[in-house]
Nucleic acid binder design. Structure first.
Lengths: 220, 220
DNA sequence: TTAAAATTAAGTATTTATACTTAGTTTTGT
DNA sequence: ACAAAACTAAGTATAAATACTTAATTTTAA
């Protein structure tokens, strides 16, 4: 029985790498590819693969949003999320979105194939390092958040002005107000007020929270 | 004339992707691979390739260190640095280390081949976005630092104590002194002094410089 | 053309970070 | 056992960040 696979990743090197890896595997075929999230959904609707291998970070729609959409509208398609980073946030979001597996891009060929086969056969596969993360979060009661965090990047409860976005980038680069002022050719007091407004809009108490929120809302 | 290439990248998917990309190119052959910096140097010594394609971030030795070593000991080998990020720091360091080219992993096949051929033929190729960065830095006189920054991760001019390392991690997580104090069960004033000492040891004026230095010295 | 939104920059106040030092206590190495 | 190093926490001082507001000017949208 042939396992039909669709790849979604904006880097052609990564897609080619996966294809090369699967090339000599009997029973597995890469039937189509996508380089962004929206394209991935189109390709899936058209081809109805058994498995979607999707990078977590992509233009148009990120991997988690794609997984949530596939889980909702293509229940027969299994999803395997790829990520460069062993990130607790990403893992939890993947699970909440309904992913069948999560794998690091640095995984061995052996692990990769194991994950793909397991997922294709209806099982779950989360890379070993991630299991304790899963346990921690489920034990701590983060399981009730169903597909909430994955939607938030699409409909934000606020809107940043052009200037605020510029300020945000520099703040996230850890520049102080004087440097920000110099770079944007405004006064230090002006930079302070923009910064204050950003904190208010993102509901952040300090730089750490601002950074987390910016990542969560995918503002960077 | 065949261009012999060695690949150095710790992700097998990336190496496979590059191989797949080069597979149908007459005149180019991937003759060996390495998955970390030290292995890369061994492979180069053994195989004497025309070009080394090296990821900037690798275990054992990072790509810039490898390039510096190759520039010094294998002058006939051209080097092309790959990076996921369009980072001014990385570009400047690559140039200083003697790299013949710098490319983003998201580059198109066309650009990739253009870069490879140009570098193999003795030219330089830095991805378009980078040219202005190069100009900025050269104009601002950062050109005199020859292979200095690439060696520093190996021999540091200071030593961090156990406690300082703990403080550094939390500072880089953007935690404030009160939170650091709570987490390590020390007083806020103690956290302040450790923080001050860190700034002094790493010769940093502020959080931004501290973060940069920590990355440069590979303390995180 | 006009109104609304955004940008700018000042005011005053509190909190936190940075700067630098001193000194007692605890831990580690010889 | 003792000396050195590390850790701890206080002192005083300056600078920066945060908090919140007001208001004039510029830009943008209707």
């Amino acid at each position: 029985m042939m396992i039909n696979v669709v790849l979604a990743d904006d880097h052609v090197l990564v897609r080619d790498g996966i294809k090369a890896l699967l090339e000599d595997q009997t029973g597995i075929a890469v039937i189509d590819e996508a380089s962004n999230g929206k394209e991935a959904l189109e390709v899936i609707s058209k081809n109805k693969p058994h498995v979607l291998i999707v990078d977590i970070r992509m233009p148009e729609m990120n991997g988690i949003e794609v997984v949530a959409e596939v889980t909702k509208n293509h229940k027969e398609v299994k999803t395997l999320v790829l990520s460069m980073h062993d990130s607790e946030e990403y893992v939890v979001q993947s699970i909440h979105a309904g992913a069948d597996g999560y794998l690091l891009k640095g995984a061995s060929k052996k692990e990769f194939l194991k994950a793909l086969n397991k997922v294709a056969n209806g099982g779950k596969y989360f890379t070993g390092d991630v299991s304790s993360i899963i346990m921690n979060n489920f034990v701590n009661g983060n399981t009730t958040k169903v597909a909430k965090t994955v939607k938030e990047p699409l409909v934000l409860p606020f809107k940043l002005t052009k200037r605020e976005k510029q300020i945000l980038i520099l703040v996230l680069e850890l520049k102080n107000n004087k440097d920000i002022a110099d770079e944007l050719k405004i006064s230090k007091r002006t930079a302070e007020v923009h910064r204050f407004n950003l904190m208010k809009k993102l509901v952040a108490k300090n730089l750490q929270e601002l950074t987390s929120k910016a990542k969560e809302y995918q503002l960077i």
